[in-house]
Amino acid sequence: MNKIVNDFSITVGTKNGSGSSTANNTILRSIFKMGIPVSGKNLFPSNIQGLPTWYTIRVNKDGFIARQEKSDIVIAMNPDSFARDLASVSPGGAFFYADDIKQPITRVDVSIYPMPVKTIVRNDPNVPNDFRDLVGNMVYVGVLAQVIGIDLKKIEAALSFHFKGKQKPVDMNYGAVKAGAEWAKANLEKKGPLLSRSHEQNGRADHDRRQHRRCHRLDFRRRAVCGMVSHHPGFLARRGAQRLPAHAPQTRGRQAYLCRGAGGG
């Protein structure tokens, strides 16, 4: 099992003006509220609506929060930058994408996580039609939180901070976060060999059979457990050590990137 705890970079690729800023800030703030050193950096074209935009979050237990020239976790929400986003994932990393983007998956060395963002938002009666695109960004927050172990309570606190305590937008956005997390918990746990499923869904049957078998063996060896405990001595000392919770969801992939706090923040 190759666990990488509190030491990775997340990049979110969206369209400029799509309202992803709140979602990205929520991820950043919730990780920070878990007591983990973090920084967030924007990369966007001048205010030209619709062009690709990226937001990078550096998570590092030792406090090294400068920009990294790699992305361990990439979330692709923009069809226009999909191929570039997929290519940017570090080998062994994780790639999340909105499953309404119908483009080929060309990587076999990363874990693939399609997310039914539009379906989840459409099925939420609390989200008005004209808010679906904006609130939809919160779905990837929930899926990511479930997979890498971001504390949902911290996400709710981050949303409350962002919306200055206004309960209605907090509820609407947090509802989408929870829906995303619940979907990920139900589906990613039950479906087991996620990468294989993703390959089939995305036409990966054409790759070399030997390579395919090798990938699967690797995946099974590296089956990982996600959880929420800080291994950083400083945090352990300040906030009290915890162990991995028994209910921690299982995922599979080349590497498991985990966010672990200790209830502080």
Partner: peptide, 9 residues
Amino acid sequence: LDMGMNQWM
């Protein structure tokens, strides 16, 4: 701009 535009602890 790294200080002016981005999020820092």
